[in-house]
Write a protein that binds this DNA or RNA. Sequence first.
DNA 1: CGTACCGACTGATGCGTGTAAGTGACGCGC
DNA 2: GCGCGTCACTTACACGCATCAGTCGGTACG
Lengths: 350, 350
Amino acid sequence: MDARPVNPSDDREAGPATLPTSADVARRANVSRATVSYVLNGVTTQKISDKTREAVRRAAEELGYRPNRAAQSLAAGASRIAMFVVPSVHLGELSLVVSSQLTARAAERGVTLIAHFQGPTSRPVIDVAQDLRPRVVFSMFGLDADTTDWLQEHGIPVVSLLPDGDQAGPGNDRSGWLQVEHLVSRGHARIAYADTTEPGLEAVARMRRRGVVDACAQHGLEEPVYERFDLTAHGAQEKVRSLVGAGITAVASYNDEVAITVLAGIRRAGLRCPEDLAVIGVDEMAINGSMEPPLSSIEFDVSAIALLYADALSDILDGDPARPREASTTRFLEGGDEDVMRVVVRESTG
Amino acid sequence: MDARPVNPSDDREAGPATLPTSADVARRANVSRATVSYVLNGVTTQKISDKTREAVRRAAEELGYRPNRAAQSLAAGASRIAMFVVPSVHLGELSLVVSSQLTARAAERGVTLIAHFQGPTSRPVIDVAQDLRPRVVFSMFGLDADTTDWLQEHGIPVVSLLPDGDQAGPGNDRSGWLQVEHLVSRGHARIAYADTTEPGLEAVARMRRRGVVDACAQHGLEEPVYERFDLTAHGAQEKVRSLVGAGITAVASYNDEVAITVLAGIRRAGLRCPEDLAVIGVDEMAINGSMEPPLSSIEFDVSAIALLYADALSDILDGDPARPREASTTRFLEGGDEDVMRVVVRESTG
DNA sequence: CGTACCGACTGATGCGTGTAAGTGACGCGC
DNA sequence: GCGCGTCACTTACACGCATCAGTCGGTACG
């Protein structure tokens, strides 16, 4: 019996339960600790008889053994933690569902996914990464350059759904494209882009706007008029009036919140939607159907997006550890762009 | 020089940077590793001269040394991780801001706060806790009984903002009380409660409803009529008509989303708000001012709530480690109930 | 002058795990 | 009968840190 310090208090008032270690499992199965480790990690370079294998598994099961991740990390020189950086943005349930599903998928691979909220009052990602030494960092949009550089230097791969607004490429947010395509299909030719005024969203906003601008160019329309709406609806009706006065017939909005603000502006200006001005948002909030008029939007297929992340995780875990350089570049999730988001049509776009 | 395996590739293509250890710091400062540890952890039981102290700090600084948390956890027998369980609920920015601020505050105390999203597709809290062995678990609402028990058994304290709906007590969500008090002050006497149909919110919903029911009883009103609205607004106008037909003059809603659905029902029933039916929500979403009519709500003071959590964290970290039993009970954050939320009055309640 | 004490450190050990290297038993060919 | 190769394990070490138990030089005390 080893001399682990034991709570001297009597049994009725048992202290915090001491968790079993692999040594406990080994004792119970009458094997060495190494054997336990080999069996439980499914090491193939080591022959273990089926009896022993079974005995170890049973002992572990009976004891409710869970490896101490800290010790594993220390021994392996790499943690089994993945980090999901959640933007300080209202993204509907997107972050939540993606994170939940990815957490489950990661757990199957023995990786614990933890979420970290980004925001002005929060902790820098680098700081957290230095503590946790995650195996991989997931983000929705690109991380800033300093963070990316640091992670790359330390061989930590980054997986982003989308690059930030400054980077071109096929991975760009297609929401703007879909908005414009839908509006064009409804006969609109003079389109405005309604941006948010909220700080911290610059990268996303730039990217979505870019999609709208590019799509307009593609369809031979003139560059969309740019306007910003703050969510208090302050001045919204004047802005709407001036857009309509300028001949604009449809507005593509940064997101549903902005679109709702535009709707309020239209009503208060005494105008009609969609007759005088059509509006479409992004995010497909649950309440869109309750708007006046009901709001068209772009919906994300959150499960599909979660799967993209999960596949990237598998790639990285299975990846050749001998080429960490290659793996440590940011990778963006493309593939099936069309499938990842779709237009939800309601009265606000006729 | 020790024989740590070194990347044999040449310098131009440096592999992942090897992070400095306390041994590196010790060498650089010409002291032992023990001294480094004492200095950097501010151990008071050990006398260290100011010169040495300074030398160690400088060496650590110059090397950019960060302790390996895994090793720390292993050696200390306790992790420096705290876990924040985020409900799978739209809570506005509440979770986000609280988590961000608490993360920062925890970091000051050397604790890394990680967020974990709860949800049907997610990983059980117990599972994650077994991996991370957090020092403390924060949640918004009470965790389920199994989880609470497991955490308690393992000496992990739980801090909740609010107990779940089944528990009475002063910590209960005051949002319902504030809604009713406001409606009563506007002359309403026949009140209905509009609940959500979304699964997973039962505990919160029960609690908020309870507040409304209790407040009505307190004010001598009859028990509020109970109705559920799903966010598709399906059947909302019929439900609204029947409420008005039954003499109801005001609706307290589970949250703003439900309230917005009720507003849509009122408009589509050809009725007026607030003349025929007043409505108030909870959460104070940014777009409330853009509703038709603008929606009254209950606003949370997120910073104040974040502070409550932070204080609880300090208590626990400073707490007497000799009485872990005591600390491992769930604690609820009360205190300054009035300050934590307030009514935002708009046209929907006159 | 012996020893008790104190300041300022250092050495050694253990935390729980992964894994390279070693060990004994057994079978096989010659 | 002996070397040799498997098989099925076990032993031993390393990971980076905290921390207890020394160590050593200097001073105070009797």
